[in-house]
Design a protein around this nucleic acid. Sequence first.
DNA 1: AAGTTGCTAGCAATCGATTGCACTCTGCAG
DNA 2: CTGCAGAGTGCAATCGATTGCTAGCAACTT
Lengths: 348, 348
Amino acid sequence: MNKAAEPKHENPSPRGARLVDIAAAVGVHHSTVSRVLNGDPAQSVRPETYERILKAARQQGYRPNALARALKRSRTSAIVLVMPLLRNPIWATIERGALGRAAERDYFVMMVQEPTEEPRPPAHYRYLVDEMRADGLLLATALRAPEHASTDPVVPHVYLNRRGPHKGNNVVMDEPGAVRLFVDHVAGLGHRRIALIDSRAAVDTVHRRATAARRICAARGLELTVKHAPPTEAGGFEATRALLAQGTPPTACGVGSLNQVFGVFGALRRAGIGIPAGMSVVSFDEDECLAYLDVPVTSVSMPYAELGGAAVDALIDRIERSATTADVLIREPMTLVQRVSVGAAPAG
Amino acid sequence: MNKAAEPKHENPSPRGARLVDIAAAVGVHHSTVSRVLNGDPAQSVRPETYERILKAARQQGYRPNALARALKRSRTSAIVLVMPLLRNPIWATIERGALGRAAERDYFVMMVQEPTEEPRPPAHYRYLVDEMRADGLLLATALRAPEHASTDPVVPHVYLNRRGPHKGNNVVMDEPGAVRLFVDHVAGLGHRRIALIDSRAAVDTVHRRATAARRICAARGLELTVKHAPPTEAGGFEATRALLAQGTPPTACGVGSLNQVFGVFGALRRAGIGIPAGMSVVSFDEDECLAYLDVPVTSVSMPYAELGGAAVDALIDRIERSATTADVLIREPMTLVQRVSVGAAPAG
DNA sequence: AAGTTGCTAGCAATCGATTGCACTCTGCAG
DNA sequence: CTGCAGAGTGCAATCGATTGCTAGCAACTT
């Protein structure tokens, strides 16, 4: 601690100005400054004092110390977003939606990456709230909840794009709706044998899509094959090869993730199967690049930014009003982006 | 010897246990607990007391309040990562590298998204340090620094994948090396007219690549065309069309971003130009999907995770040791991933 | 003239952890 | 028996902001 010569005596603190600094400049008590700056309605101040405080605060570039404030208020105004680290662009979209909404509501978002290879139970992230780094958790880890229903002291949290063990704090996409869009479209074109290539069933969204697909296909008398594979190019490739090895392969398939789409295309190309002549393909992830592939890919476009925003809203409601919110299902706008990878079923 | 029959001091705080709670349970002053838990070397405690403190802390699941600690220590152990919100997968990789390194060094990372449509100068993010939400800034906003050299009170910060107005706090990739890899490869196959399709020149990485390309091509007597376009599929598409409209179009091109690659492919396909027969293509972003396109794309693979990690190291060094670090250039491992989108130059 | 009201503002406790300093014991040397 | 060292702890200030309560003072009411 060598005494660094501070040439500027305006601000004794090495950091920014504090309440006491501007109080000293104006000649009032710092509590008065606090009330003025926070617009305390119970406080009345002479207009002149008011102006001088505001001016001094501006001049000194006052920024409230978020730590001290949070400590006193017992509220950090920060939330943690726990996300898997995947290349899938939907996560970026969800993130954008969440960050935007959080900013609107004056919250900070701290990101934590879920190690994909070794996912942790949501309870693992409790410490962030216990250490008072944040007020609540936005859990976007992909896996379904096999864990013990956590009855320990509850930390505000909301599950994003997955369902947790309890009702009331889940914000999810209308996956059955997306599946129906896909099935209706291809069934309308005469396809009777349908496939779903998706990530592993332990992923909640995948589970819901697969369940919905089975229900919908059963109701329509369609034959369904579900293939689970890693959400990568290689995963899509292998799943497609397995599909083609069937006696009577499907003629239309929905693909759960963008990366798998590339693999599906690769496998069909290698097998000499034309798209959509030999196989119709629909992606459940919409991305601009799909329009530029050798065969532009039809996809189901889902409102991921809204999903992120709605999850933030739900979490903040829980934090601020300790509200027992209801599960949120994001439906709109969900559209089928028709390009050319879907065609009529082959005759016969 | 008071045999406290586990008086189970009901934690009066609605949040987790505090130092005073475990101090009360053990029957010592909370300052003693603090020293024990922090392993203060200047402290001597009876082994028995030591054990009881540790046990009580464990029992009550003590978590230090990060806010109070940071307030007292004047250090938050958190850094902010400011990133553009782009679909480009390199950002996810940089992020992974940064988050991993930060975790190793016991720092938290708070993400802030740079609005892509309306980028802000780095100074805009100062408030995060001024409000003591973090100790420093990792600036990964893409634009080159046109701003006035900021001489105001310095906040610890490091520029990531771009260069700021000053030396010493920039961590960048060896873009000239990447360009050389590309040019050497295609020149070695006989190409004499080369193009670079990249984002706008205001982006620092783009500027460095373009500059390097001009220098290298000039030195080798190669003809170079640089096209700037948005880092999107549409951008790559348009740039390629413009290129093909030239009297004697180039026969090999490097493409700055993954999304543009799709556009380039689309435009070449539409123009009936084969890859690599009519045009060799190299991507400056490596991604697994490139291997699965109809013509697998040769790319330059760069160590983005290392870049993110090195930037975190540089920033933390600046924060903790207020060190005047040197600029960091990430070179290794940088490789040319050869696939099939590059071929010999057309004869003539 | 005394009491009441309203405006303006200060005092001090508080949030939870850290840390320099001081204090109380023992044991032991002088 | 006195003094002193050192082990083992406690006290209280501190970080910066918030907020319930108090207090001075002027104006206004009976």
